Simulated scan of single mutants.
Amino acid sequence: MHPESENPESIDSKVNNPPRRQFTRQRRQLNDGMRRQYAQSASLHLAKLQQRLPPRARIGLYYDGFGELPTQPLLDWCQRLGYLPYLPVVGSLGRDHKGLDDKHLRFVPIYQSKLVNVPTRIHRLGMKQNHHRRLLWARELDVIICPLVAVDKHGNRMGMGGGFYDTTLGKIYRSGAKKPLKIGWCYDFQVVEQLARQPWDVPLDGLITPSGIRWF
């Protein structure tokens, strides 16, 4: 069932979202070996995403700097199949009248084979990011792998709370454009039955976890 087929107001009136710390605590309990093992299991399902992609597809990734399911297997997959990987950049469009970074993400190409080798600096919000002159808009990508704290069985995503991905993808989603595909990448314990949905939330098109891939 597509998440648009339900009334967001009826969902919001019945559902209380679990606290983000519930999921971040579970992620922190995993050691590096467990994370790598789960990521390797999830990567086995990428072949089903490949079926929907053109040759030389442009794929937006992200750094897994907060205990997320590791994204290095996604970069390995891109390089193995000739896809073009990119990383998000916050604040490339300057700041608003309140001095806050513009929330529209743009994307820079990855030239290294390992994410740990990508030259980065720490953004004031804590995430790593690379700066480069060749910046792409989200609409120029074929797929964006979206970070998340939790996701429900309708594709509704709970992010970190900054609103960067919803802002970046909102206009594209409302226009009905078919790309980029919005794909979640997470542990199975981050999947819940139902999340409250706000009018500005952008649902995922698909989700990959260690146990499989699902489409919404």
Rank of each mutant, 00 (worst) to 15 (best):
S13V: 12
R35T: 12
A196T: 11
Y187F: 12
D188L: 00
G212D: 07
P203E: 02
R20G: 13
T167N: 07
L44D: 03
M127F: 13
G162H: 03
V149Q: 06
I122Q: 06
T24W: 11
E140C: 01
R95G: 05
P8C: 07
T168W: 02
E4K: 02
Q37V: 11
I145H: 01
R21H: 13
D166E: 01
D76Q: 15
H131S: 05
S13F: 06
H123K: 05
W215V: 10
H154K: 15
I183N: 00
N17W: 11
A57F: 06
G176D: 03
C146H: 05
M158V: 10
D201C: 06
N7A: 10
I172S: 04
A57E: 02
P109K: 15
K128M: 05
R52Q: 13
R157F: 10
I145G: 01
D152N: 09
T71Y: 06
R197A: 01
L69F: 09
A47S: 12
R25S: 15
R25T: 15
R35V: 03
L84M: 03
K14V: 13
W77M: 04
D188W: 08
L30G: 06
D32H: 12
T120M: 00
Q72F: 03
G161C: 08
R174P: 01
R197H: 04
H45L: 03
H132Q: 11
R25C: 13
L207P: 04
V151D: 09
M127Y: 15
H2Y: 06
R106L: 06
A47T: 09
H131W: 12
F107R: 06
L87C: 11
A57S: 07
D142R: 00
M160C: 03
Q112G: 03
R124W: 11
H132A: 05
W77G: 02
M158W: 09
D101W: 02
Q112K: 13
D76Y: 02
Y86A: 04
L204D: 00
Q51H: 12
Y86N: 00
R25Q: 15
L100Q: 13
T167Q: 00
I172M: 05
L93I: 00
K179H: 14
P199I: 02
R80Q: 13
N156D: 14
R80A: 13
K114Q: 14
P109G: 14
G33Q: 14
L49G: 04
L125S: 00
I213K: 07
T209K: 10
E140Y: 06
Q51M: 01
F189C: 10
V191S: 13
L135P: 01
L49A: 08
Q112H: 15
R121S: 15
H132K: 08
V116F: 05
F23P: 10
S10T: 14
T168Y: 05
P3M: 08
R52Y: 14
N117D: 14
L87D: 04
D152E: 04
L195T: 09
T209Q: 09
E68P: 04
H45S: 03
K14F: 13
S92C: 04
P88S: 08
